[in-house]
């Protein structure tokens, strides 16, 4: 920044700033959001003579809406904005950052220390900070002779773990030497990450060739696949799922995962699109197999129904849907779970 330029925190709820901000994004061809107040945790702008010439924002640890006026694009303002965002996040104790952007901006981010995670024709995903994909892959438990075994993987949110999930895992365990269960680490579901992880572990404790691993931020997280958790349009879901799939392929190759199992998805549109993207992007390196859902006498088992039963206080009705460990947990924590629902936790999302 030169002396005529000034960095400011932007409050997008103020119409005066919002208008300038939206105009700059539109000018630089970036699609802004109509509901920014929920969409962004913090936003910065650089002004020259009261005019906004560069901006950037963040939501959790994802950098967003980064734009620099075309008349000032020599790289300086871009670096200033990224610095401001990183400093703001680090003051909150966040030291691991992601960015989704168009392929043409990849170099600009690499130039300030970001590393490429995944790319498609439409978008790239990069990260920077104190942990990295390689560190994550290095700490995943390994088997002896991993490279000669038939290894498969399942990624699940398991909110909470049901007999449907267990059925999927047992099928996979029969068809392969070893199965990785990656439990989604993003903590935005009715059951907390810790609860979900423990219930998966307990519910699969008797299967010797299954290991349960946290997915970290590299699978189905706010960074790789935000629309799994937030409502989004179909084209956004499509490009995000493609990136998530590309990233999974990168991880799978290093862990020698040759197959990924998916549960058939009759209910959630987002999950159905995700399954489609995996089928389109993972082969030939990783084979995708979709397994039909487990059906009890009357209906298909789903975690959504379990959550609805908790909401309505009718947990007896889902007793046959879940392993004893999950049922016991729900019974003991029914009140806490209901409070979370009353406080606004969605039961019919993911």
């Amino acid at each position: 920044m030169n002396y005529a330029q000034q960095l400011k925190k932007l409050n997008l709820k103020e119409t005066h700033y919002y208008k300038q901000w939206a105009a700059l994004l539109a000018q630089e061809g970036i699609k802004g959001s109509s509901q920014v107040s929920v969409d962004v945790d913090g936003c910065f702008g650089i002004f020259e003579d009261q005019r906004l010439i560069a901006t950037g924002a963040y939501q959790k640890n994802v950098l967003k809406y980064i734009a620099v006026d075309a008349n000032y694009q020599d790289g300086k303002l871009f670096n200033d904005i990224i610095s401001a965002l990183i400093n703001a996040l680090s003051q909150q104790g966040i030291f691991h950052f992601f960015v989704f952007t168009k392929p043409i901006y990849r170099k600009s981010f690499e130039f300030v220390g970001f590393k490429l995670l995944a790319e498609t024709a439409l978008a790239v995903l990069l990260e920077a900070g104190d942990v990295s994909l390689q560190q994550f892959i290095a700490q995943v438990p390994r088997l002896e002779n991993q490279s000669t075994r038939m290894i498969s993987a399942i990624v699940m949110n398991a909110n909470p773990f049901t007999l449907g999930h267990r059925y999927l895992v047992t099928q996979a365990a029969q068809k392969s030497d070893f199965v990785y269960i990656f439990v989604v680490s993003q903590d935005v579901s009715l059951f907390t990450t810790e609860e979900r992880f423990k219930l998966v572990q307990k519910g699969l404790a008797d299967l010797p060739n299954v290991v349960v691993v946290p997915s970290s931020e590299y699978m189905v997280s706010y960074a790789t696949f935000p629309s799994y958790f937030l409502p989004e349009s179909q084209d956004v879901i499509e490009y995000q799922t493609a990136l998530d799939a590309q990233l999974f392929k990168k991880i799978a190759t290093q862990l020698n995962i040759r197959q990924r199992f998916l549960g058939e998805e009759p209910f959630s549109k987002t999950t159905a699109l995700y399954n489609k993207a995996l089928q389109a992007n993972l082969p030939p390196e990783v084979i995708v197999e979709v397994l039909p859902r487990l059906e009890t006498a009357e209906q298909v088992i789903s975690a959504t129904q379990v959550r609805k039963a908790i909401q309505s206080g009718a947990i007896e009705t889902i007793r046959t849907f879940v392993p004893a460990t999950t049922y016991q947990f729900i019974k003991q924590n029914q009140a806490t779970l209901q409070v979370r629902i009353q406080k606004g936790m969605q039961v019919d999302g993911n």
Binding site: N79, S83, F95, V112, G113, D130
Partner: peptide, 19 residues
């Protein structure tokens, strides 16, 4: 004790992160 960061990405500066 924990990760920390100092500096910026401006020209003539350096951004350092310790973890």
């Amino acid at each position: 004790k924990h990760t920390a960061i100092a500096g910026t990405l401006e020209s003539s500066d350096i951004q350092i992160m310790l973890s």
